Amino acid sequence: MSLRTPYARIAITLPEADLAAADRLAKQQDRSRSWIVAEAVRRYAAEVEHGEPADALGSSRRAQLLRDVAMTAEERVHEAEETSRVSEQVTAPRTFASFDEFLAWQRAGGGSA
């Protein structure tokens, strides 16, 4: 009894950009073009079978978009202004050129609230 998975040969037509992307992935991952296409089908099928959106939106992003669409234009403007106000209060994370620089900053009390 053979342990090999049965294969079927098919012919498909892809846009050139998609084929080029599949070839790039195949080369990067040291896989065949067929493996890349089969893996894409497996992942897409798994998403659909588990009720997950097949498009690029996750469930939380989709829910947020639905809430946004339900708002009036005035409510959306208010929410955008609030988001802008809050984002202005957030500071960019501190970066360090070296671990020694980080240690000096930490010893000087950096990062303590």
Rank of each mutant, 00 (worst) to 15 (best):
A26E: 00
S2C: 08
D23C: 14
A108M: 07
A46L: 09
E82T: 10
A38Q: 12
A26W: 00
R43T: 04
R43N: 08
A56H: 03
D55V: 07
T72D: 00
L103Q: 12
E49D: 07
A8G: 08
R85K: 14
L25Q: 05
G58L: 01
L25M: 10
W105H: 09
L65G: 03
D30V: 15
E74G: 09
A63W: 00
E81R: 10
A45E: 06
S98I: 07
A97Q: 06
E75L: 01
A63R: 00
S87K: 13
A26T: 03
R61G: 00
L25T: 04
G58C: 03
G109Y: 05
E79I: 05
V41W: 01
W35V: 13
E16N: 14
A63D: 00
A54T: 06
A20T: 14
M71R: 11
W105Y: 11
S32P: 00
R67Q: 06
I10C: 06
T72E: 00
H78D: 14
D18C: 03
P53S: 04
E79Y: 08
L103R: 11
A97G: 11
T83L: 03
F96W: 04
G58P: 00
E74T: 15
V86P: 02
R33H: 10
A46F: 07
L65K: 10
V86R: 14
E82S: 09
A21H: 11
A80S: 11
R4A: 10
L103S: 13
R4Y: 05
D23G: 13
P15M: 02
Q106A: 13
D18K: 01
